[in-house]
């Protein structure tokens, strides 16, 4: 495990210098601010587009709608941005050959994977935490507080789904070469998961449930028990994806 701290610091500096940290923070903070506002303004926006003869009766937006909007934004656009930012997480170092020198100087290969994972995890957690805090503040200011069961659990689910994406990206980058193939493989894997959702009975086990049932968990529309199953399955997948990356990268010729 030699060189973990040094490589970890190098990763963080690289995220800062390549503007990736800035983008991720800005985008997630914007989502955190935008979602409550969008929820608040939705009736006005829709009423301006009233088709003649049809009156749209939109119920007054509530606390739930604000978080519903937040989960919708983050599980779609947020995850897309996450994929783009971390798409080249290992593959770009491999395709540019920047790792060869470091590995030759005695940096352990396990340290590379773990440091990359740790840096990505910290960046994702920080941006997500900012988004959630701002979302919370704006929502409290704009809406009356309602008792929200499982709100924290819903937020946790989306966070875990983000980690799931990060580890799958890391694993795909060790499995295939090329600057963007890790990104493509991960997108393909997510596409396969979406297709699998059409098979009845499988959706309760799919990690995708963590990103799609968040709003439902708050209102009680989604089954909490199923979500807990999905959480455990995702945790197992995350750990095994990390283990696969460690093993494959150890044997990979660079």
């Amino acid at each position: 495990m030699s060189g973990f701290t040094a490589f970890f610091k190098k990763e963080i500096v690289e995220y800062l210098r390549s503007y990736k940290a800035l983008i991720l923070l800005c985008v997630f903070i914007i989502f955190g601010m935008m979602s409550p506002l969008l929820a608040k303004m939705m009736p006005d926006i829709l009423s301006h587009q009233a088709i003649n003869g049809i009156t749209l009766n939109i119920p007054k937006p509530t606390f739930y709608d604000s978080f519903g909007q937040f989960f919708k934004n983050l599980s779609q656009m947020g995850m897309a941005v996450l994929l783009l930012i971390f798409g080249g997480v290992l593959s770009q170092d491999l395709s540019k050959g920047t790792l060869i020198m470091l590995l030759a100087k005695g940096l352990s290969r396990h340290a590379v994977i773990l440091a990359k994972f740790a840096a990505a995890l910290i960046l994702w957690t920080a941006s997500y935490a900012f988004a959630v805090m701002i979302q919370w503040g704006y929502t409290l200011y704009l809406f009356d507080k309602l008792p929200v069961p499982h709100l924290f659990f819903s937020l946790f689910c989306l966070w875990l789904f983000g980690i799931f994406i990060l580890t799958i990206l890391l694993m795909s980058s060790t499995l295939v070469g090329g600057a963007y193939s890790g990104l493509f493989l991960t997108t393909a894997a997510l596409g396969a998961l979406i297709v699998c959702q059409f098979i009845p009975g499988t959706d309760r086990f799919s990690p995708l449930a963590l990103a799609s049932d968040n709003a439902g968990l708050m209102t009680g529309a989604a089954n909490l028990h199923h979500a807990v199953t999905a959480v455990w399955i995702t945790v197992i997948l995350i750990v095994s994806a990390l283990a696969v990356s460690l093993v494959v990268f150890k044997k990979k010729s660079i």
Partner: peptide
């Protein structure tokens, strides 16, 4: 009925953040 102008103070930070992103990108370009 909420007026857009009531929410303006809350919209400004969003616009500022978007401008930061756009300007950083333009400077880099």
């Amino acid at each position: 009925m909420t007026q857009i102008s009531d929410l303006l103070p809350l919209l400004i930070p969003i616009i500022v953040l978007e401008l930061i992103l756009v300007i950083t990108a333009l400077i880099h370009i």
